[in-house]
């Protein structure tokens, strides 16, 4: 079993729901500095859950078949990504239990072709029975964009995808560096969780 101890380096930075007074969303992100990030050897990802107003950093805990599971420093919450796209969340309530995002991965790499492609989300209903949501997605914009992370400008290609079901329409955005690294992403997760923003900090 991998010791969770190495994750405690950033424990002091963790701001999770349950803290008595929750600071405004974005305050935690604004407080992250290069000096703080430099104290961490592992890959470090910023995660902001817009719908819940919760933010934290996460570090990789486990890798399985191309999916990385990242954990918050207190070990409470987890998020799993494939090629930088969120495929599951835990401890956020209306969690994304699993997802099939093969089409979105290709689109975010500019390999989509231009037509419609499917995207599937699995969540649990109030009786903990699985519910599946099948989106039809297409790329709505693809542009070069310089983004600033921790004061450093990074060249990226931004891909916006618009995904619809009979009941809703959501837009996800992915910013990839030339080497394929997902620098930033903004993805709709579920009704209860809303949008999750991820940002690669190192």
């Amino acid at each position: 079993m991998k010791p969770l101890a190495s994750l405690s380096a950033l424990a002091a930075l963790a701001l999770l729901a349950g803290c008595a007074a929750q600071p405004p969303f974005g305050a935690f992100r604004a407080g992250l500095t290069q000096e703080l990030v430099d104290t961490v050897d592992n890959p470090l990802l910023y995660v902001g859950v817009e719908g819940l107003g919760r933010e934290s950093t996460v570090q990789p805990l486990q890798e399985l078949d191309g999916v990385t599971t990242w954990r918050t420093p207190d070990g409470t919450s987890a998020i799993s990504t494939r090629d930088g796209l969120v495929v599951s969340t835990r401890s956020l309530g209306d969690d994304l239990m699993a997802a099939d995002i093969a089409g979105s991965v290709a689109a975010s790499k500019g390999q989509g072709g231009g037509g419609y492609y499917p995207r599937f989300h699995t969540t649990l209903d109030g009786l903990s029975q699985p519910e599946f949501e099948a989106f039809q997605c297409r790329v709505s914009a693809r542009t070069s964009e310089d983004i600033v992370i921790l004061g450093r400008a990074r060249a990226s290609v931004r891909t916006d995808e618009t995904c619809t079901t009979p009941g809703r329409e959501v837009t996800n955005s992915y910013w990839r560096a030339a080497d394929g690294t997902m620098l930033r992403a903004r993805q709709w997760i579920s009704e209860g969780v809303g949008v999750i923003i991820t940002e690669r900090l190192n």
Partner: peptide, 21 residues
């Protein structure tokens, strides 16, 4: 209220340990 609609959807259960290869 409706038993099918919990006030805390899904619950705040701490993340489980991930599957290890």
């Amino acid at each position: 209220l409706n038993p099918k609609n919990p006030p805390y959807y899904g619950g705040g259960d701490a993340a489980p340990y991930p599957v290890t290869p």
